[in-house]
Design a protein around this nucleic acid. Sequence first.
DNA 1: CACTGTGAACAAATTCACAGCG
DNA 2: CGCTGTGAATTTGTTCACAGTG
Lengths: 260, 260
Amino acid sequence: MATGRTHRPATRSRGIPEATVARLPLYLRALTALSERSVPTVSSEELAAAAGVNSAKLRKDFSYLGSYGTRGVGYDVEYLVYQISRELGLTQDWPVVIVGIGNLGAALANYGGFASRGFRVAALIDADPAMAGKPVAGIPVQHTDDLEKIISDNGVHIGVIATPAGAAQQVSERLIAAGVTSILNFAPTVLSVPDGVDVRKVDLSIELQILAFHEQRKAGEEAAAVAAATGDVVAPPPLRGSAAASRKGPDGDVPAVMPA
Amino acid sequence: MATGRTHRPATRSRGIPEATVARLPLYLRALTALSERSVPTVSSEELAAAAGVNSAKLRKDFSYLGSYGTRGVGYDVEYLVYQISRELGLTQDWPVVIVGIGNLGAALANYGGFASRGFRVAALIDADPAMAGKPVAGIPVQHTDDLEKIISDNGVHIGVIATPAGAAQQVSERLIAAGVTSILNFAPTVLSVPDGVDVRKVDLSIELQILAFHEQRKAGEEAAAVAAATGDVVAPPPLRGSAAASRKGPDGDVPAVMPA
DNA sequence: CACTGTGAACAAATTCACAGCG
DNA sequence: CGCTGTGAATTTGTTCACAGTG
């Protein structure tokens, strides 16, 4: 849900569906685990279970990559690991910079999963002069002033923004001007970037809000079940403020279980 | 991309599309910013720009909530803030526990955006006895042994897992047994949970891999553009291993720009 | 015979385009 | 007139179900 498909609108239809791309890392992880256990082959059924999807979807996904399975047998684990890695571009090493070395930035720098799969933390950058030189996760923090030089010296194309929201847009502009074309944004802001730059965002509070929505709905359903049994009219779960006077809800005036 | 739509498969069609739910927090954030600047009304166009979506989508999204706008004018900011908050269940307070107080867990605990919007960190839990009692973000860390009691004493329904991958499944089982029905999972594993439990996952390395895919594609396109100009044949960007002998690619044997 | 690969059916999400209201 | 709200068209994603192959 992150990338605004900012760049080229799928020029000549050749291409793997975005939804499939988003699942490839999942398959890759499951396959890597199998590989470590020296499992030679998997069926679509088994692999799908391990990746948490259904097998039809997995087979369809793989069909976009090519015919890499063997009918009656399944997929060769090692071979698939290789193919997916290559498709994702993980056979090369991607230098990454992290900008904003606060709590989160430090946590990201320390995150092991980074190095394991094709990514290398090339530099840590922070605006606080007091941080400069201090090592975090074994890498000395550098000052924002040198951002452009760091990017170009290291040939960085992928940047991670873990700054406060207020700084994110400006940081992204500097990153992009210096040559970054993919950004992973942890700051709770919408970045506006030129075409050709991909942005994905990770936002704790958005995820929690989505969970809260479903959680509230569950509470509503419970109440409805009870009410259905007792014949009561159900009021929407939380307080409904004074405002909601006389506006139309989605379906007229039906006393719905969900807040109208 | 996270929730496996684990629970009830949209029982009686009444309901807001998942894609819309996922955008409501985005709108809410943009609206909150406007509200702080005391802007009284916004058009769908303006708000859409602020939220990083297009205006048709925004209007369609809002139409699922009801008719909250005024034709010729736009939307009342305060009123919309209230309606969306209510829809997302943010008019009530959600106590949340964070399990796994390592680098990431600590960063999450310190994250301000938590409290701001209806969420309250009710407890921090870690398996390391040495951590017990130590305050993180002003909250004393408690030991995993007391997990069940903490959950039920605080009426927690939402849990955040920031443990190592190996511990995540077991932690989720304990959380669920104790009453949690929504989980935000930062551990790089697929959790398997019973129906009725929602899981959303946040995974740095998956996001980076998706970016790498697009990044690689960009490199390919550049090369293609150059090749088109010079008449060269283009080889797929990174090394292609020895394995790829004689398998079918997605579209026969066309010498494609993208790795076959 | 157990599996993959895939057309065809279906469902969800997005976008278009405009009627209709304030 | 300027905007929202929404049917209809389109695109994207998922699932079904089975032909075909090792």
